[in-house]
Amino acid sequence: MLPDQLVFAMEVTLNGLMAGVMYALVALGFVLIFKASGIFNYAQGVLALFAALTLVGLQNGQIPFAHVINAAFGTNLHHFGWTLPAVVAIALTALVMVGVAWLIERLVLKHLINQEPIILFMATIGLAYFLEGLGDVMWGADIKTLDVGLPQGISETVETVTANWLGYGFFIDKLDIVAALVAAALVAALTLFSQYTKYGRALRAVADDHQAALSVGISLRFVWVLVWSIAGFVALIAGIMWGAKSGVQFSLSLIALKALPVLMLGGFTSIPGAIVGGLIIGMGEKLFEFFAGPLIGGATENWFAYVLALLFLVFRPQGLFGERIIERV
């Protein structure tokens, strides 16, 4: 039998990798938009919140803006009276996110073409506040239970197998296993899309060189709508996974904080970087908490993730998979 500490560390490592997948799901949205447009999208966390709110609202047949309508007309509206199957609600929410992407392009980005990246970044800060407020007015600020049929709780299979092998049954959340599978499918789909479809190639062309892409007839505005739509869909997936854990509430937007060290480490322009960065951050912070936490009072994960990312940056300023920026004077 292995020593207890080693067995426990193995369990912590596995759980850290699973947590890393959850972080990577959020980081992916940032990477997609940054890669195609050079915009650091501050609103990515709020997009996940907005998507999750819309999903629950549609699924439960909640009337959007009911509070405002009731206040204005003295009515007492709340629900349409339907409950949609999860798949239908997810599909409709994805459509809403495409609509949001189109509106963002029409109302915000179109007017900021050729502006400095910092201007675009500031615009996404405004967008984050706007979307958070819109989500509140549309769907209310109460905590909503998200039930799309995802399994939750300890995986008995993993527990039994590890108990037989190692004498200690590991805890792995079934939701985390699903999240890992979804993340793998998502990365595969995104890779196939960008490598083998016309629009994917257009997206890569814009990512490589805006002006060259424009010169061969690729519509920058269409690509922006496309990439924000995909980022909106990724935000929906992240919102579902995180919302299933805690219910859909406004703190969901703060999951973006978990993605930042992942981006620093993995690079802002690499999809595999987001995944590998997530895994390293997740595993690193959990192992540090396991070994060093008891010695220094615990609660190390939030700050250690950034320390770990900074350590990597010392050796690779562009992140593990980021593009090296060489500027010649």
Partner: peptide, 21 residues
């Protein structure tokens, strides 16, 4: 035993693994 969780607390896996151990 004391187990701190940083705000907002969306990720508590470390603390609950410790409780389980």
């Amino acid at each position: 035993s004391t187990l701190p969780i940083d705000s907002p607390g969306q990720e508590q896996k470390s603390q609950w693994l410790q409780v389980r151990r």
